[in-house]
């Protein structure tokens, strides 16, 4: 069972009155865009060097570092490539690679 988080929906909501939302309230956690297009570098995790200290998990402003089998992995749909994880990792297990076009 994966953790709860706002998730991508396949449809943009439709509302009765045409152009305007029906009310000012709406379902929480409703995502329609990825953020991956913002990125020109991507973090790559070196599993052999990762000790699972989870510092990158704590310091990621976007919450895109996921816990996986005692180590970490990256959600590339929402990572913006800021590089904070690579800077915070004292084991040198995260390197930033240029995004291929």
């Amino acid at each position: 069972m994966s953790a709860l988080r706002p998730c991508l929906r396949s449809t943009v909501p439709e509302w009765k009155n045409g152009e305007f939302p029906d009310s000012t309230a709406y379902e929480a956690g409703y995502l329609v865009h990825r953020n991956s297009g913002w990125r020109n570098r991507r973090p790559v995790i070196e599993p052999e060097l990762c000790t699972g200290c989870l510092q990158c998990y704590l310091y990621c402003p976007d919450g895109t570092i996921l816990k996986k089998d005692g180590k970490v992995s990256v959600d590339y749909d929402f990572c913006k490539g800021c590089g904070i994880c690579a800077g915070i990792c004292v084991h040198g297990a995260i390197r930033m690679e240029a995004e291929r076009q």
């Binding site: 953790a3 709860l4 988080r5 706002p6 991508l8 956690g29 995502l31 865009h33 953020n35 913002w38 990125r39 402003p61 976007d62 919450g63 816990k67 929402f78 913006k80 490539g81 800021c82 590089g83 904070i84």
Partner: peptide
């Protein structure tokens, strides 16, 4: 918790 309550937002990188 592993849940994320603020996710997919449009803040600048490194905010």
């Amino acid at each position: 918790t592993e849940d994320e309550y603020f996710f997919g937002h449009k803040a600048c990188a490194g905010c």
